[in-house]
Amino acid sequence: MPQALTVRRLTRSYGSRKAVDALDLEVLEGDVYGFLGPNGAGKTTAMRCILGLIRRDEGEVTLLGDTDPVRQRRGVAAIIETPAFHDWMTARQNLMQAGWYGGLSGSSLDRAIARVLERVGLVDRADERTRGYSLGMRQRLAIARCLLGEPRMLFLDEPTNGLDPAGMKDMRDLVRSLAMHDGITVLVSSHLLAEVQAICNRVGIIDRGRMRAEGTVADLLKSADQPLYRVRCASAVALAEALPAESFTVESTDGDVLLVRTALPAEDLNRRAFELGFALSMLAPVERNLEDVFLEVLA
């Protein structure tokens, strides 16, 4: 897969503080790339630098194969922080403005506006002023604005911030369908890890302006450690003592629940417990999630 975005040694300082510090980043075409980091890690600053909204002190950005800072924004759309609109104009008028700025006009712009309004489900509300729009509607209108120019790559900065659960699900479904059906490469920043795990195939974790870990979600979730199982058994303490220590490591005991680490398959653990005279009421693998990876990387 060719690169959609390559960032090399991107640096931006505010006074003596380096908000983005020699950041390297690579997004492949077709990726849904999760850009992770704690609050204040430099995610938004990095995205702003990449999109040319703020100066960069150093570094190179290649976006869709182009290094020219203006031209490379062709084919790119973005939502940075809370989307802003001219609230004294209607949604349609706001989209007209964006279309003209993006080089669309006349009937092709009208068609594009009809298409994107349909896509985000705002057809009925298009001729209302955006002043009365809820946060979820503003977010959807912002997506519509992004889709006007049929972008090849989309930057989304905390797209579900402040949305209610239904709004978050809508946004997640929309991002997924943009990536799957429209083939748009997406870079989405977030600190909601479950969300990122649900929609992204690759992630980068940044902290204090630097890339700490980058890779596919599957790779990052692989652990060097042996798999861990949660086991429930009426006589848990006795089981913990009976299991042979050379192949099973009991990590903890909590009431009737054990955490057991082993290189053997789960079936072997079950058979062994049965042979020792214990009946298990539950045996489940404990899967690592992105949160574990995130906390390990930042530790």
């Binding site: 999109l51 909204l53 203006v70 790119v76 802003a84 700025y101 080089g103 604005r145």
Partner: peptide, 14 residues
């Protein structure tokens, strides 16, 4: 101030 210039400058225009 109201951040709409940011939205405009995301377009590929100098």
């Amino acid at each position: 101030g109201d951040r709409t210039l940011r939205e405009a400058l995301l377009a590929p225009v100098p």
